[in-house]
Computed example of a mutant assay.
Amino acid sequence: MIAGDYALAGALTGFVIGLTGVGGGALMTPILLLVFGVSPTTAIATDLWFAAVTKIVGARVHHANGHVDWQVVRRLWLGSLPMALLIVVLVSLGAPVAKVGLLSSAIGVVVLVTAVGLLAAPKLLASARGRRISRPERFKALQPALTVTSGAILGLCVALTSVGAGALGSVMLLYLYPLRMTPHRLVATDIVHAIPLAVVAGIGYLFAGMVDWWMLASLLTGSIPAVIVGSTLAGKVAGRGIQIALATVLMAAGVKVLV
């Protein structure tokens, strides 16, 4: 496969990441599996480092605009980073989670759940807003613990499949912080949370020699300029249409991966 094809895939994914915070795993991993025929372990390992580097570039743009909610990010990290580290240890020890068949199935399931979450986001947001307004004290009291728990779920998904930090994370944040998460803040917070999570989750695969460095370099050639453009346009383009289109693609990709 020529470098240009990887760069094009990286550019597409990088633009979507910058614009919506979604796509580092949910879009790139299925592309690597279905379009380029990459093995699940190599796809996950390479995608984790692709997401980390790409989102660092995108995060700089969002952080400069003051959109990152650091309190929410820290709460997510309390759950996601320890869980990802645990999975890294298990993968390094050769636990069954690292078997190709299980990884393929896990990727397909998480991609499907991600697609459903994107489609259901408006209804979840409306429900959460109703609860937040009708029972504000109880809702706010539960926010910290539920955010840490959500982080742990994301850490598990990302460490096993490289999927979930963006799409599932954004849906969770909308539900947990329906009044606080403006579109700009949601994208920025989601991206920043995903960076150390991808690094921690990718460490085990890195030391296991599963990262394809040539493919990673080719992907980043396209994604780095594209994520800057996407991050700059975030909030200026209607994100819902992009979410629906992305969810449709992910639904088809998830079914294909499982079949």
Rank of each mutant, 00 (worst) to 15 (best):
5 D>L: 15
7 A>N: 05
8 L>D: 02
9 A>R: 05
10 G>K: 06
11 A>S: 09
11 A>R: 01
26 A>S: 15
28 M>K: 01
30 P>R: 03
32 L>E: 04
34 L>Y: 14
44 I>N: 01
45 A>R: 01
53 V>H: 02
54 T>R: 00
58 G>K: 06
60 R>S: 13
67 H>Q: 07
68 V>I: 14
71 Q>K: 15
72 V>E: 03
83 M>I: 14
86 L>V: 15
87 I>F: 12
89 V>G: 07
97 V>T: 09
99 K>W: 08
102 L>A: 04
108 G>N: 03
112 L>A: 10
113 V>Q: 15
116 V>S: 12
121 A>N: 10
123 K>H: 08
127 S>R: 12
136 P>C: 13
142 L>E: 12
143 Q>C: 12
145 A>N: 05
148 V>G: 09
152 A>V: 09
152 A>N: 02
156 L>E: 02
156 L>V: 05
157 C>W: 05
165 A>P: 14
174 L>I: 12
180 R>Q: 15
184 H>G: 06
189 T>Q: 11
193 H>Y: 09
198 A>V: 04
201 A>P: 14
204 G>I: 06
206 L>V: 05
207 F>I: 12
208 A>P: 11
210 M>N: 14
221 T>Q: 02
228 I>H: 10
229 V>E: 08
229 V>H: 07
240 R>T: 08
242 I>N: 02
248 T>S: 13
251 M>T: 15
